[in-house]
Write a protein that binds this DNA or RNA. Structure first.
Length: 544
RNA sequence: UGGGCUAUGGCCAAGUGGUUAAGGCAUCGGACUUUGACUCCGAGAUCGGUAGUUCAAAUCUACCUAGCCCAGCCA
């Protein structure tokens, strides 16, 4: 799938055409403080695909300028996710690689009279900043001499001051209607070990200062970020201009991607994990890339999904059906179609010999002969899906089994249900049916039509399997309600079912279509003697 | 009440003054079908509102309305 037309692609085309840039350089800059989720996939895919489209390059840069939140475990998880999506960064870099360089540029700003050391406390600074509708007022420390600023900034760096005691601020405009321009802090003191630079530094640059400089150092031409940074762009440009970097990068903002019924907030995702409401960041119900991967989503389905949603300057919420469709679309002709019964009910073919098993040759995928074929078993004892039987045919649309009704067992015979045997508690124990030998699949029998076609497995040869079915974690998307009250108690359901014997040697993350039931993937923990399958998505259905 | 951004069918989204306003998802018809799947046909918007400019406007202008973002020593 090719990246569709969007405003950033258009800007790049124009910049290339006008000679403003001669190659496209982008970057994906995650902060290593969380797992990536499907929302991040838009940023990743946009940056990489755009650069790829124009023959440019994309860096992965960990934005690690705040050591209190960051951790190298996230660095590894993020690298893995990006690699999984199929992208190779031109360079893997860290914001912390540039601490020395940005320190030098901070000194440059001080020397130009454009930055000063401020002694205001956080509370005081908030007061001085003013409000959305009223201008701020200048810090009493705003006009310190350059010499004093230089000395104090060096003292900050050398660890003379405690956290919060002093900051370095850009001297811009305390009455700007854009609050970001009201002398933003560009360096703060944090005495804590940094995952990458250890204890070398105790002052750390703020995002607004560090980011444009990093982009400049790397020769990034188009620095893409989300909409909320729109009113930081003026600051971005200010730092680039005042620091007089050799390369001049530009920032462009696009809308975030949300998905219906999906939690996309870092905080909530963390809460789900911390409170053990899920089994970790890679729980198959999680919208993290690790979770989607474990669930069985293919990278192609993720990339195609993102590309098909397009890109604009609107924060959009697309339907989760679109993601699901993307997976079905990808797997439809790619995977084997398997007989599996998730919620079994026993069927006895009373007119079929006790110890006879027939093996019927069936293609794995009618739409893709390259996938080959296997033999499926038919015998006296079978399992069918519980929901495929209703004692009395409820209406004329019912295309499954009922008492006195005949259906085809796919790729085998017509069977007719004659009697229902119940357990003591009134539940169904088994169905007594008869088959018609003349209706064998492929025989061309056409004297009568069955009431429908259902799938089955033969009991003595089928393999038992744990089958997990998922529903959304949240019952509704009313984000005003507390997270707990929105949890779906049925988000994870495990069934003891049976699959056809060809799945004996399945491997982790092998994908299948279980006929009429959906797309499934073999779980990480599945073994030959303990098969586990996860449903990725259901098949579409016009029956409900 | 300050600043910024946005507004095209149910959900995304092309479109940059002249085409019957692309496409995908969803929906609803219909065909096909040994998956109520797939596939194939078909159906549906005059572009937030109003007023202008123009031979011609979703595209330009003005005003209005609605939504989102911003007052971290987070990113």
């Amino acid at each position: 799938m090719e990246i569709t037309s969007n405003f950033i692609k258009t800007i790049m085309e124009e910049d290339l055409k006008s000679g403003k840039v001669d190659t496209i350089v982008t970057r994906f800059p995650p902060e290593p403080n969380a797992y990536l989720h499907i929302g991040h996939a838009r940023a990743i895919i946009t940056n990489f695909e755009l650069a790829k489209h124009f023959g440019g390059k994309t860096n992965l840069r960990f934005d690690d300028t705040n050591p209190v939140k960051e951790d190298s475990s996230f660095v590894e998880a993020i690298k893995k996710d990006i690699e999984w999506l199929g992208y190779k960064p031109a360079n893997i870099l860290f914001g912390s690689d540039y601490f020395e360089a940005s320190y030098e540029l901070a000194i440059k700003l001080i020397n130009k009279g454009l930055a000063y050391v401020c002694d205001l406390t956080a509370d005081e600074m908030r007061e001085y900043r003013g409000t959305l509708t009223s201008p701020g007022k200048e810090s009493p420390y705003r006009y310190r001499s350059i010499e004093e600023n230089l000395r104090m900034f060096e003292e900050m760096k050398n660890g003379k001051y405690k956290d919060g005691e002093k900051t370095l601020r850009a001297k811009i405009d305390m009455s700007s209607p854009n609050i970001n321009m009201r002398d933003p802090v560009i360096y703060r003191i944090i005495h804590i070990e940094h995952h990458n630079t250890g204890n070398k530094w105790c002052i750390y640059p703020m995002y607004d200062f560090a980011h444009p400089l990093q982009d400049a150092f790397e020769g990034v031409t188009h620095s893409l970020c989300s909409l909320e940074y729109d009113d930081h762009r003026i600051l971005y440009d200010w730092f680039v201009e005042k620091c007089e970097t050799e390369h001049v990068p530009h920032q462009y903002e696009f809308g975030r991607l949300n998905i219906t019924n999906t939690i996309m907030s870092k905080r909530y995702l963390k809460q789900l994990v911390d409170e053990k409401l899920v089994k970790g960041y890679d729980d198959p119900r999680m919208p993290t890339l690790a979770g989607l991967r474990r669930r069985g989503y293919t990278k192609e389905s993720i990339v195609n999904f993102i590309l098909s949603t397009g890109l604009s300057r609107v924060n959009s919420t697309v339907s989760s059906e679109m993601l699901e469709n993307s997976l079905r679309d990808d797997l439809n002709n790619k995977v084997k179609r398997i007989n599996a019964v998730i919620d079994p009910i026993k069927v006895v073919i009373t007119n079929y010999p006790e110890d006879k098993i027939e093996w019927l040759e069936v293609e794995y995928n009618n739409d893709n002969p390259d996938l080959g074929s296997r033999k499926i078993a038919f015998g006296r004892n079978l399992y069918i899906e519980r929901e495929d039987f209703l004692e009395e045919k409820p209406n004329k649309k019912w295309k499954r089994l009922s008492l006195g009704i005949e259906v085809r067992l796919m790729y085998a015979y017509f069977i007719k249900c004659n009697e229902v045997i119940y357990n003591e508690d009134g539940t169904i124990k088994e169905l007594l049916c008869t088959y018609d030998e003349r209706t064998k699949s492929g025989s061309g029998f056409d004297e009568r039509k069955p009431n429908g076609n259902i799938h089955f497995v033969e009991a003595s040869t089928a393999l038992p399997a744990k089958i997990n079915l998922f529903e959304p974690l949240l019952l509704d998307s009313d984000s005003k309600k507390e997270l707990f009250s929105r949890m779906n108690p049925n988000s994870w359901a495990t069934f003891s079912g049976f699959v056809e014997p060809s799945l004996k040697n399945t491997y982790s993350l092998e994908r299948f279509q279980f006929i009429r039931k959906g797309y499934f993937a073999t779980d990480y923990d599945s073994t030959e003697n303990n098969l586990i399958f996860n449903r990725i998505v259901e098949l579409k259905s016009s029956y409900n």
